[in-house]
Design a protein around this nucleic acid. Structure first.
Lengths: 231, 231
DNA sequence: TCGCGCGTTTGATCGCGGTCAAGGAGACCT
DNA sequence: AGGTCTCCTTGACCGCGATCAAACGCGCGA
């Protein structure tokens, strides 16, 4: 069965430059002579940008299958993609090559377009999270998202990856690192979460976690990954 | 000379349902049998959604030439497009018709895709505004945006439309209406802004306004409307 | 002209989350 | 083992913006 990632990978493969990354490695999003398209293949990445006279912002979390097109990122000086996972893989394509491919294969054009639309929707949803929810609810929203994306059922509950440092989380949720730490401690105390090794968390009861974020149902609909597969 | 709006309007025209709107009139974004595409023709619109147990959020401001595709809006119960200007015009198209058109005309597919990418970038930028700036800076950012979009030079300074109520602004900037009122009063006191009739503001010195928002240069680059015209 | 209603303004007070600072827990190197 | 570096935790305090409440202004219809 083909998954979301394979669908785009096939046609791109002959034109892609493969890049493997280690944690915190950065790829520049500065304007290039040709527009560039990145395809996330493995691992989680963060798209980030500095704000003048302030801290960096994490503009979005990128998952395998996601596409990053330079034009769809605002022209912020110093924008970049940063690897969050220990090991990751990205493919880089020059946009003219992508265009040529899409002119040959309409289905590909449509898939790329749909993927970008979906990511735009995720961005908008994140907007609503930041704008409308309290600190506790924002953190819960992030945990729900990662649990849905990377979670695996075990006897102890749902185990999921947490490749983001406290600072990363803070930059993503528009909080500050100390506050994030406090909120996570509080969630641990309530039994909503527990540590599971360096880079994983366990959620003993997903339902309880889900209830601490008003937008859970929408987040769930957006992060059921296979929604968008062509028939 | 063709502008951004005409470029998409031509091919869509025979398939579009024209809708003229009065202030505060709403168009539903609820999932339809077929996906839907709206093209903004005249006036300013807000895309909005309610947050469970909280106030509505304004997810974005839509300008003439903007496209709204259902798939690019997160599945929030009660999402809608609301007319902000006194009079406006929108075209509605069924997505299957748009797809068919794009299969015939590759340049159209590319233009639609680029427009949506650009709007995604604006969304991301707005994210950075909400997440990284203080209340005063956010309001300044909005004023800069509207001044660039709708402003006209006069003897008294740059006159621009302000079709948003205090409440709309608050919902857009993740502030509360009282705070917005206070901030705007403060800006008036400093001479950054002045009223110019019911629905317009004057900005005596755009440079001073620009300096009160750290992201002005990026906002300016994003809202120079004709950036994206095909050659 | 008056009365009504809605949006706005402004003051007083509160509380969430930011800031600053000290201390702790690992990872890694020598 | 000791040292150092980075990240995390926790406490004490502060300030921006939220909340509540009262008054104001303006449009609109009777």
């Amino acid at each position: 069965m083909k998954n979301l990632l394979d669908v785009v990978s096939g046609p791109f493969e002959p034109h892609a430059v493969r890049i493997t990354t280690r944690k915190r490695q950065k790829l520049s999003l500065a304007a290039q002579p040709d527009e560039v398209l990145y395809l996330i293949r493995k691992g989680l990445y963060l798209s980030r940008a500095p704000i003048p006279h302030a801290r960096h912002q994490v503009l979005g979390i990128l998952y395998p299958g996601d596409l990053v097109r330079t034009l769809a990122v605002p022209p912020l000086e110093g924008a970049e993609i940063m690897a969050a996972s220990e090991k990751g893989e990205v493919w880089r394509l020059r946009w003219p090559a992508v265009k040529a491919l899409m002119d040959e294969r309409h289905d590909l054009a449509r898939i790329v377009s749909d993927r970008l639309a979906d990511q735009a929707a995720r961005g908008t949803l994140h907007n609503a999270v930041i704008a409308g929810l309290t600190g506790d609810e924002r953190v819960a929203a992030l945990m729900v998202e990662l649990a849905l994306r990377t979670g695996k059922e075990t006897a102890a509950g749902l185990v999921f990856e947490m490749p983001l440092s406290r600072m990363d989380i803070a930059e993503h949720l528009a909080l500050n690192p100390d506050t994030v730490s406090r909120i996570v401690s509080r969630m641990r105390a309530k039994g909503l979460l527990a540590a599971a090794g360096r880079r994983h968390l366990v959620c003993p009861s997903f339902d309880e976690l889900a209830q601490s974020c008003p937008l859970t149902s929408t987040i769930a609909r957006m992060h059921k990954v296979d929604r968008l597969l062509p028939a």
